[in-house]
Amino acid sequence: MTPPSSIASVIPKGGNLRIRRVWNSVMLVLLVLGSIVVVSPLIAVLGAVLVNGLATINWAFLTQEFRPVTEGGGGVWHAIVGTLLMNLLALLIGGLLGFAGGVLLSEYPDHPINPYLRTISDLLNGLPALLKGLVIYAIIVLPTGMFSGYAGALALAIILTPIVLRATEGVLQLVPWSVREAGLALGLPRWRVIISLVIPAATAGVVTGLMLGFARAAGEAAPLYFTAGGSQFLNFNLGQQTESLALTIFKYANEPSVLRQEQAWGAALILTIMVLIASLLARWATRKYN
């Protein structure tokens, strides 16, 4: 064996620990600076929404429908209702599609369709929301000749589906295989095992997926522009043109009226709170599940 030569003869003279320490500190400073660069505009955005929104929101703003600027401008109740109704329907459709896809990926891991489904679902998730609205426009709005809340809900459902799908797959995979084996060993058919044993064990996780999907879909304005069409009236019938908060923000922000711009901030705060609640619920459900 080669006699071990002393390390001292190999390393640069005097050791390099000091310079390495300096680098260590320099990098920390850079990282902190980078983080500040990131955080400050984000605080600016949230702060602007909070300050301007709080100045606008009051009971009338929440409960009134659209009114012309000359009559005080009204509120956004019609947009809140439209947002919730369209998203509810979208959660039903997209939730079902995504949930079923997630079950397929997780419970039939060897199915030949799975690699395609997984790739396509991620692809769908990454495609611009705008295009999801455009395609619903082309296949529903254009032939029927009218914007509707149903078309809007369909576009939102397409946005939701891949989010719910991958979230469902993720939580179902956390259920240990022994649970399934125990059920199969009792003589239960596979579908009963999945419905009665696997899915109940992952309920909270499925809620997480739905909430994450809602948080994303609720804030989308572009796809609704071509589908729901927007409206100034309160209606509970999705067969008609429907307003959403995100559309309201877009329209009001571009109006010259200062009142409308203030109302856009108010709508933005409401929308932010909705997204916040949805993502907190998602978090809470995940924690509960774990």
Binding site: V10, I11, G15
Partner: peptide, 12 residues
């Protein structure tokens, strides 16, 4: 480990 300590010489 040696690279961390600044050793660059190939033969070493």
């Amino acid at each position: 480990g040696l690279k961390l300590m600044g050793v660059r010489r190939r033969d070493v």
